[in-house]
């Protein structure tokens, strides 16, 4: 204990943030790189209140379900979800604003990887939870199903959505956008993916925003927990400038 403490004091005196010396609970070889890439200059701590629900094994590496639930951290400003050993590590960046700090999504994996969620609290600290997904791989370099379907363009950008009133658990919005989500990693198929979704209420008030990355599975299917009533408008845009719109009551 004593030498450990001494080391911490030494690091602190050198200006290395204390929190950063916490060992990665997932013991991932990719953590130093992920930390560099996404958390440089940020204060962070591993915290179980950020729950990441993923399967142990990716039975289908082109569409692995994930759900991030943040409980007990007030006023979450932003949530980053990334799979650090993926060729496209970032999955979604979410600004919950007037939404609950929860998000459901499906993503591709190229190999076994931790999936992390980093939630930024009002105190400026990033709280990080995560879990490993074991995978045979290949999900990111596989062509989309749409890329082999001549009719995909007819359905591009269709938004299907539904709201549930779940009693004590509040209102929930689930949606799916028809989009191939091509990663650019399959030979001869350029990067083509949904980039952004904004949720707005019936009084034009901004509810929340999510940046979607090409690692999200084909036909992105997302889950949001609402805090407000009324209808919701969904505004989306992809990297080719296509716009999409949906509305749900």
């Amino acid at each position: 204990m004593k030498p450990m403490l001494a080391a911490l004091v030494l690091l602190a005196s050198l200006g290395v943030p204390l929190l950063a010396v916490a060992a990665d609970p997932l013991a991932s070889p990719g953590w130093p790189i992920a930390q560099n890439r996404f958390l440089t200059g940020k204060t962070y701590v591993f915290d179980d209140r950020v729950q990441v629900i993923v399967p142990r094994d990716a039975e289908d590496s082109t569409a692995v379900p994930g759900f991030v639930r943040v409980q007990g951290i007030p006023d979450v400003q932003q949530i980053m979800v990334f799979a650090e050993l993926n060729p496209i590590p970032m999955i979604v960046q979410f600004w919950p604003h007037r939404l609950e700090p929860n998000i459901g999504f499906r993503f591709k994996v190229q190999q076994a990887t931790p999936v992390r969620a980093a939630a930024l609290g009002a105190d400026g600290i990033w709280y990080i939870g995560g879990a490993w997904v074991n995978a045979a791989g290949g999900g990111c370099s596989a062509p989309s199903i749409a890329s082999a379907d001549a009719d995909w363009a007819e359905r591009l950008g269709e938004v299907h959505s539904r709201i549930w009133n779940r009693g004590d658990e509040g209102r929930r919005l689930r949606l799916t956008v028809m989009h191939p989500m091509d990663t650019g990693l399959a030979a001869g198929i350029p990067k083509f993916y949904l980039e952004e979704l904004v949720l707005v209420d019936d009084a034009d008030k901004h509810l929340g925003r999510v940046e979607v990355h090409a690692s999200v599975a084909e036909n992105p299917t997302l889950t949001f927990d609402l805090r407000t009533g009324g209808s919701v408008r969904i505004q989306g845009a992809d990297n080719n400038g296509n716009r999409m719109l949906g509305e749900v009551e």
Binding site: I53, P55, P65, G104, R106, W164, R166, R172, R174
Partner: peptide
């Protein structure tokens, strides 16, 4: 209204 991951 459960998400696929919640079904797990």
């Amino acid at each position: 209204g459960l998400d696929m991951a919640e079904a797990l």
